[in-house]
């Protein structure tokens, strides 16, 4: 009954005293990989379960072996050193960790990395660079849609996905008519962006930035 290959892998879990991640192939060299291995502890110490996962991040294939407990957020930040996605609460209560998986925005802190076998993941680093900003990033700069900057990558990933959601006709809590095409109003943007908290209070400017990009797209 059982025996999908990945399950086999997880059964062949590596018993390690240290669960330092091991990077394969295309993954960058990371500090942890240079850590001298600590001897495997004898006796009753609980085992660490490792599992291998492959996915693509910003178009690049990645394969890493991880402690199964590693969230997608920590895999990105601590193992792939893609620190653009932020840890604000680690409990799905703030949105700073928002990334786009398979075209949809999710909280990367509330999903295990090993559950993303084969997924296409897009992070803030995949949208643009300081020298070549994505239109949404440029609009945030222009409209001062941030202050401390910590929630900003999540806001921007969310904003990009929100415009796609509206285009796809997904309704929201404030849509007056569930059966009419979704509208691009200020109230719609604010409702849809409400999973991204900005304690600095840049909301009014963020709404203006998104509106400008949406207008350009339309």
């Amino acid at each position: 009954m059982q025996g999908p290959s990945d399950f086999e892998l997880s059964r062949r879990k590596i018993l390690l005293g240290t669960a330092a991640s091991v990077a394969f192939g295309v993954a960058p060299r990371i500090a942890d990989a240079q850590t001298p291995a600590v001897p495997v502890q004898a006796g009753a110490a609980p085992a660490i379960s490792m599992s291998k996962v492959s996915f693509s991040v910003n178009g690049k294939p990645r394969e890493i072996a991880l402690d199964t407990r590693t969230t997608l957020l920590d895999a990105l930040r601590e193992h792939l050193h893609l620190t653009g996605s932020k840890k604000g609460c680690d409990h799905g209560q703030c949105g700073a960790c928002t990334v786009i998986v398979g075209g949809r925005r999710i909280n990367s802190c509330l999903t295990l990395a090993v559950m993303h076998e084969g997924d296409e993941i897009k992070t803030i680093e995949g949208l643009g660079t300081p020298e070549n900003l994505h239109p949404m990033q440029a609009a945030f700069v222009k409209h001062d849609g941030y202050q401390c900057g910590y929630c900003t990558p999540g806001q921007i990933c969310s904003a990009v996905a929100v415009l796609d959601e509206i285009k796809a006709g997904i309704p929201s809590h404030v849509s007056a008519d569930l059966n009419a095409p979704a509208q691009l109003t200020n109230a719609e943007l604010r409702e849809r962006m409400s999973g991204n908290i900005c304690r600095c209070g840049a909301y009014s400017n963020i709404a203006e930035a998104i509106t400008e990009v949406a207008g350009r797209q339309a």
């Binding site: 653009g84 949208l127 643009g128 990033q137 700069v141 941030y146 900057g149 900003t152 990558p153």
Partner: peptide, 9 residues
Amino acid sequence: DGPLKTTGT
């Protein structure tokens, strides 16, 4: 510092 903050860098 806007380009750094908006690109997560």
